[in-house]
């Protein structure tokens, strides 16, 4: 019983993150609304950020800022990587939003199937 609880407590973060990743992935593939797609892409990315930060966590430790009286610190490296990744993610999102604005200007819709339909009609 004890070991099962340990397993669940030790891995709950991973499983929650996996659930987040899958919600994001499903949304990216299944949703037709472009804005929704981007939001789901962002959920997917955030899941990865959480995964990294979870890897850097350490029991009974403190934030990685060296100070008197503390000797155990969380792992700083995943945090550094995620600082970079968050910014990269937002830059990508910004370009995505800009594309949505332009697509809306050109097609008057941001539903993927409607846009494809308009292209089809135009070709005929």
């Amino acid at each position: 019983m004890e070991s099962v609880l340990d397993l669940v407590l030790g891995h709950f973060n991973y499983w929650a993150v996996i659930a987040l990743l899958m919600i994001g992935l499903y949304g990216i593939i299944a949703r037709q609304n472009l804005l929704k797609k981007l939001a789901c892409l962002s959920i997917f990315q955030t899941g990865v950020f959480l995964l990294f930060i979870s890897w850097g966590y350490r029991h009974d430790a403190t934030v990685p800022i060296l100070a008197e009286g503390f000797s155990r610190y969380a792992n700083p490296l995943p945090q550094v990587l995620m600082l970079t990744a968050i910014v990269v993610g937002v830059a990508t999102l910004a370009v995505g939003y800009a594309l949505i604005v332009r697509i809306h200007k050109a097609y008057g819709s941001i539903e993927e199937d409607a846009i494809l339909e308009k292209d089809q009609q135009e070709q005929e």
Partner: peptide, 25 residues
Amino acid sequence: RALLAAFRYLVTGTLGATLFLIGVG
């Protein structure tokens, strides 16, 4: 149509890069 192509490329490309990032982690 270049706009939608770019958008789809953005979503797929970012998905690919994020998967790569999980692998790195």
